[in-house]
Simulated assay, not measured.
Amino acid sequence: MAGSSKESPRPGEIRLWREDDWWIATDVETGVTTQGKSRVDALENLDEAVALHKGEIGHEPTDAELRELGIDPEATTTRDTDRPDFLK
């Protein structure tokens, strides 16, 4: 029977389990976790989330995109500021 070790995950190792009505999927290497109503949904969400985490897809929003969402770019802070202690 195939298994995994929490101490030394294999490259590309994922964990998938069910909690109530949701399937939970975790990419062991990155720690990224997602969920979905089906196994397929959870795994598709995980693929997208890992790609975002690795910078393979997505982009920083432009000022125009932020304004379309009702966010004033001048009133927001960026990652360049010091993070609160609980986020360090």
Rank of each mutant, 00 (worst) to 15 (best):
A2V: 08
A2I: 13
G3V: 12
G3Y: 14
G3Q: 07
G3R: 11
S4M: 07
S4P: 01
S5A: 12
K6D: 11
P11G: 13
G12C: 10
I14E: 13
I14K: 15
R15M: 10
R15A: 09
L16K: 06
L16M: 11
R18G: 01
R18P: 01
E19S: 12
E19H: 09
D20M: 14
D20W: 09
D21V: 07
W22H: 09
W23V: 06
I24W: 11
T26Y: 04
T26M: 15
T30M: 10
V32K: 08
T33V: 05
T34F: 03
Q35S: 12
Q35Y: 14
G36V: 08
K37E: 14
R39E: 15
D41F: 05
A42Y: 08
L46K: 00
L46T: 01
E48S: 03
E48Y: 07
L52V: 03
L52P: 02
K54F: 03
G55E: 03
G55M: 00
E56A: 06
E56F: 03
I57V: 14
G58E: 07
H59Y: 00
H59Q: 00
E60T: 03
A64Y: 05
E65A: 05
R67T: 07
D72V: 04
T76D: 02
T77V: 04
R79I: 01
R79H: 02
T81R: 12
T81E: 10
T81L: 05
D85I: 07
D85F: 11
D85G: 08
F86C: 10
K88C: 06
